[in-house]
Deep mutational scan, measured.
Amino acid sequence: MPSETPQAEVGPTGCPHRSGPHSAKGSLEKGSPEDKEAKEPLWIRPDAPSRCTWQLGRPASESPHHHTAPAKSPKILPDILKKIGDTPMVRINKIGKKFGLKCELLAKCEFFNAGGSVKDRISLRMIEDAERDGTLKPGDTIIEPTSGNTGIGLALAAAVRGYRCIIVMPEKMSSEKVDVLRALGAEIVRTPTNARFDSPESHVGVAWRLKNEIPNSHILDQYRNASNPLAHYDTTADEILQQCDGKLDMLVASVGTGGTITGIARKLKEKCPGCRIIGVDPEGSILAEPEELNQTEQTTYEVEGIGYDFIPTVLDRTVVDKWFKSNDEEAFTFARMLIAQEGLLCGGSAGSTVAVAVKAAQELQEGQRCVVILPDSVRNYMTKFLSDRWMLQKGFLKEEDLTEKKPWWWHLRVQELGLSAPLTVLPTITCGHTIEILREKGFDQAPVVDEAGVILGMVTLGNMLSSLLAGKVQPSDQVGKVIYKQFKQIRLTDTLGRLSHILEMDHFALVV
């Protein structure tokens, strides 16, 4: 994948999101292997301009796509893939009243899908469409860049269908997702969380590099694949309309690839034109409109599966009536509230959605109805927002919020430890010299600072030695090549209790 991002070429006709291997024109390309080798690009942008032909009021008969309808489940399912879809609609009884809503608040519980998330729908649909058009064949390999849930859905379907599955996901995604993927037989590649989507090191860039190296491999490409919004247009939206008897006044959905909100909203605009569509985008993402909503100094966020630093091709923002931004604290607070007060075992993005819903639905009156999409299960986040310690460490809970008995030293300040200034190293000294210094002084790690004293990161003896043994660096290389740029900081005025929580999850903390 090139470091400079080429513009994806656009073909003359058809839909841009065809499933299957992508040609340089962004659509299915038939021909000899030699032709494909000559024409197939190194990668295709996940934010390529959409060429979708959908228009409100256009006859369904003019759609270029294969459409399906929700099917009634048999008493005995032939395999677990038949437990994807037909998820329950559940009334939220307490939270709406707590925040003064007059309307009825309903939750579409997508964590009841077989793999635990709304992404099971698009995973199965992308595979079925690729099999139907002859792209996927027995023994082929599926590769997908994902925040985890699409990966789980694909790995689940691949396990049943017999495909090899490789999932490329950023490091910030939970260990629970990784464990589930491994249990399903998927191979996992992790990428830096802070890598831009168009960087060769991003999950998108690495996935395309693997595709170019592995024979008979395919990126189904949830960011561009029409099967993504079509899955929701054909099934999720129809289920909502049936469950609500066609009567709903507002739908609120958090947005990642945009397939969920695009597919549902398009069908609702056709069948229930008075329904307002509300999009939820986390602070630090750029999906919301108008652009002024996205202006923030924050560039990272903890909530998973929603928000991006690019506009995915499948996201149709014209069908969203209003956007709201959400933050991590309210997302996790509301997710825990949904679990504790409503018994809905949902993930953090569901918290984002409901946090926005109780604001947006203030305009609705008694007798009206708001539906929220709860995308995934708490299963993926047992060591994250479900953990009091994690919430404390991230600053989303305060010590006084917890009532468990603490040891005698818990409320003492870090400054009472009488710490001395640490050994520091410059980023320009060599790895070999740094190892000598650390061994001589008896230290395992040291902060790396520039000549102005600005902290650049941390270097550890173990990481340097393993990097040297693996051949990633040489003793003569500058130590700046092996620094940890993500590390926890703590102030002298913070409590030892807070430091204790940090050290339970990290090997060190830097006192500043």
Rank of each mutant, 00 (worst) to 15 (best):
P2V: 10
P6Q: 09
E9K: 13
G11H: 09
C15G: 10
P16E: 09
E34G: 12
K36M: 12
E40I: 10
P41L: 15
P46G: 02
R51M: 07
C52Q: 02
Q55I: 11
Q55T: 10
R58P: 11
P59H: 09
H65G: 00
H66Q: 11
H67P: 03
P70S: 14
A71C: 03
K72F: 09
P74V: 14
P74Q: 09
K75M: 13
L77P: 03
L81E: 10
K82T: 03
K82S: 09
K83D: 10
G85V: 10
D86N: 13
D86T: 10
T87G: 02
T87Y: 01
V90L: 03
V90M: 01
R91C: 01
I92V: 14
K94S: 15
G96F: 03
C103I: 06
A107R: 03
A107M: 03
A107V: 14
A107L: 02
N113W: 05
A114P: 04
G115T: 08
G116F: 07
K119Q: 05
R121H: 02
I122N: 00
S123V: 04
E128G: 01
G134L: 06
G139L: 07
T141M: 14
N149A: 04
G151W: 02
G153K: 04
A155P: 04
Y163Q: 01
C165P: 00
E171P: 07
L184Y: 08
E187S: 09
V189E: 08
T191C: 04
P192Q: 07
R196D: 02
R196F: 11
F197E: 07
D198G: 07
P200Q: 07
H203M: 07
H203C: 05
A207M: 01
A207E: 01
W208C: 09
L210V: 05
L210M: 08
N216I: 05
L220Q: 02
D221P: 03
Q222P: 01
R224K: 13
N228Y: 02
T236R: 02
L241M: 14
L248T: 10
M250D: 00
A253V: 11
S254D: 01
G258S: 01
T262S: 14
T262Y: 00
A265V: 13
R266T: 07
K267N: 08
K267T: 07
C272K: 01
C272L: 11
G274V: 04
C275S: 13
R276C: 10
